[in-house]
Simulated scan of single mutants.
Amino acid sequence: MRIVKQAAIAALALMAVTGAVQAKEWKNIRIAVEGAFPPFNYVGADNQIGGFDVEIAKAVCNQLKAECTFAVQDWDGLIPALQAGKFDAIFSSMSITDERKKVIDFSRPYYQSPSSFIAPKSAAIKDTSPESLKGKTIGAQSSTVQATELEEKYKGSDVKLYPTQDEVNLDLVSGRIDMLFVDKLPGLDWLKTADGANFEFVGTDLPTDGVGAGVRQADSDLRDQISAAIVAIKADGTYDKINAKYFPFSIWKD
């Protein structure tokens, strides 16, 4: 009996040393995006998805020599659907947070963007501390780091949460909210539109931990392969070419 146990232990040790147990090689990856967060992800007039997130995901898949398929999923359903096995990874400008890391895992960040307030130019708001914004009605997309920040720290404000960022923007234009809180990069893109012409960033930006690809906690091999691919497309210049299509400055997070 002892001989059998020793043989089994020796075999396991040999497997560890020789790498006999290999991580799964992902050659088919199902990817989800919200499709409603331009310029990062959107559904175009031709009913095709596009945007920065999508192009980075495709570059990652190309680096991994994997066949990838894409699906559109509403924002609030992204994590539940991932956990239910409807797809394998989320590339949808999902910020890395401690709260989310309790239920899913993340690749290394593939971009960074602070959180920012936007208000009418006529409001001339300078201070965006919780004390200064007491009584203000502030909008944000639900289930985002901005929503969490407002609910936890801006208790003296009237916080309104919406299913999509477009709805937040529309209520700001219509005057139903005093200001909004958003990821700065899509906010910058919106300020360039006709609807955003009379609005501006106000106050101080709040830093985040960056945006990564979300995967199930059990799929650490996929997480690591995506992370390695992100580093590789940065090194070979692919990332910078995609970045330049959307932004006049680098959004890479070291």
Rank of each mutant, 00 (worst) to 15 (best):
E25T: 11
G139S: 07
T148E: 10
I226K: 04
F37H: 08
W252E: 15
G187Y: 06
N198I: 06
K102L: 15
D46F: 03
Q6V: 07
P163H: 02
Y42L: 14
K24F: 04
K136W: 13
G77T: 14
K126H: 09
F91S: 05
G237Y: 03
K134T: 14
P207F: 06
E99H: 01
I104Q: 05
E151W: 00
I3M: 09
L180S: 02
L172I: 00
R100L: 15
L14Q: 05
K121Q: 13
D74Q: 12
A235T: 11
I118P: 05
V17K: 00
D209H: 04
K155I: 15
S174H: 05
A36K: 11
G156K: 08
A213D: 08
A13W: 02
S115D: 14
K245R: 15
K58S: 03
D127T: 05
A229F: 07
N47S: 11
F87K: 08
K136Q: 08
P248H: 06
P80I: 13
I29E: 01
Y154H: 06
A228K: 10
R2V: 14
L222G: 02
S93D: 03
S227P: 04
L133K: 12
I104E: 06
A45G: 09
D221E: 15
E25L: 10
E167P: 00
P248R: 07
N243I: 08
V33G: 02
Y162R: 09
N47F: 10
D178L: 14
T238H: 01
E131Q: 13
I138F: 02
C61Q: 11
G210W: 10
L170C: 03
G187N: 07
A84Y: 02
D236P: 08
W252C: 12
F40M: 07
Y162T: 09
T69R: 11
T18P: 00
G135L: 13
A228P: 04
Y154I: 10
K102S: 09
S157R: 11
D189Q: 10
I242A: 01
R223D: 07
K5S: 04
A124H: 07
Q83E: 14
G51K: 06
D53Y: 02
I79Q: 03
I233L: 13
E34N: 12
A23T: 13
F247Q: 13
D209Q: 10
L12V: 15
S142A: 15
P120M: 04
I226Q: 00
N28A: 10
W190D: 09
K184D: 06
A8K: 13
I104C: 02
E149T: 12
A81G: 01
L82K: 03
V21N: 01
L222Q: 04
W190H: 08
L78F: 06
S115Y: 11
Q73M: 11
D209S: 09
E152Y: 00
G77A: 12
T238M: 05
G19M: 10
G237K: 08
D166W: 07
D254N: 12
A229G: 03
F106E: 00
A71W: 02
G85Y: 09
D178H: 09
K5H: 03
Q22D: 09
E67R: 04
